[in-house]
Write a protein that binds this DNA or RNA. Sequence first.
DNA 1: GTTTATCGAACGAACGTTCGAACGGATTGT
DNA 2: ACAATCCGTTCGAACGTTCGTTCGATAAAC
Lengths: 225, 225
Amino acid sequence: MPRLSIAQREPQEKLQVILRHAAQVFCDKGYEGASIRDISRSSGVSLAGLYYYIKSKQELLYLIQIHTFETIVARLEKRLPEAATPVEKLRILVHNHLDYFLQHPVEMKVLAHEDEALEGAFRKEVLEVKRRYVKIALGIFEQMRRTGLARQLNPRVAVLTLFGMMNWTYTWHRSETDPKADALAETIAGMFLHGVTNGYGNGSPRLLRSAAETLRNRRARADNL
Amino acid sequence: MPRLSIAQREPQEKLQVILRHAAQVFCDKGYEGASIRDISRSSGVSLAGLYYYIKSKQELLYLIQIHTFETIVARLEKRLPEAATPVEKLRILVHNHLDYFLQHPVEMKVLAHEDEALEGAFRKEVLEVKRRYVKIALGIFEQMRRTGLARQLNPRVAVLTLFGMMNWTYTWHRSETDPKADALAETIAGMFLHGVTNGYGNGSPRLLRSAAETLRNRRARADNL
DNA sequence: GTTTATCGAACGAACGTTCGAACGGATTGT
DNA sequence: ACAATCCGTTCGAACGTTCGTTCGATAAAC
């Protein structure tokens, strides 16, 4: 008895429902720890019914990961041309990443945490998008170095450390109490660019100055190079 | 037939062998993806034989995590009193963490990646050590703020971002090609403290100056506050 | 003869996946 | 107009496999 439910009007809309619930289950129990039966129960689709929409559990994870990753990279590539300087580009990258992260925490955790769960062709395809993403970040950092803005750090280490700052958030960020995307992005971009110290001071640092103001001033100085 | 093998002379030495192999298997396949049979095969102990040394698969993971975590925290607490300034303490924390990380990559990956696999009392105990560790880091950061060295950042965000930089290394670091612990610790501590930019320059940054020298100079300036 | 260490065999439960039947709606043949 | 046919969709039941764990036997050590 095929239902004429709301979820039926668009073609393959039910697959989207399944993917949403699957992402939640993978997020809660991990890919290996989650069973197809869990996903069946959660999505309300019978065990066998799931296999009308997907070919395997692996494909389920693949669809979640590839969609999430391609979306985040596509958004980035769309926003990047707005930026004139490498520093602006860097800020856009960080904001884009964290904004998407906090808007889709479930999918992003599955993407970050189940990095090694896929095998074969599925894995290779996701890895390709990842490499594209990292290459963009590396390009921005190299630009910063070429314009004399960045120190002579190992670019690979610097960039992957930045991804560490951003991706690790899924282990600790609570949306109710922790900073929202904008503030978080500003803090992390600021940390990546200038660290946590009041590095300029030779006199007493102006402690009462707000962090945002400090950041604004520094940015202005740095961007004017 | 109890063997008089080399592994037998010390009491419970065989448990250590089992734990080493279990850590490797958990590292390769994840906690849920790994089976007791995998660990049996890898360690050379029969399936039933394992249960002479452990009570459950959960306990296996618990023993690996708690030992790794307590060791790293104990080392830190031992080394911290050497430091006079908060910045020195911060550097010791970063070096201690990464040094241990690269010396025991398998166990550290299991600790970082299987954060949510434990349940009940096991989980609570590991969480307690983690909280102790984070509290130490928070204390150091607060000291940096109180002495006017650190900007007015959200301490929780700053510290957990630092842990992100350090813990994420397990996803990308290749011991053959990437920097060793000392260099990596210096880079990451430097990034946390000063970021990646040549922030001081109002003239042209001295690009030929080595990263290490830059770092040394900055550190000297910062520590003299 | 008790204790310590070890393992083959088996337990029930849960796993991912498949099979065949059934349903309702649209299309076709008459 | 209406029965027959087909098709996209759904699911109960079962498949064979693997899972974590336990039991009872066994052999050396003391």
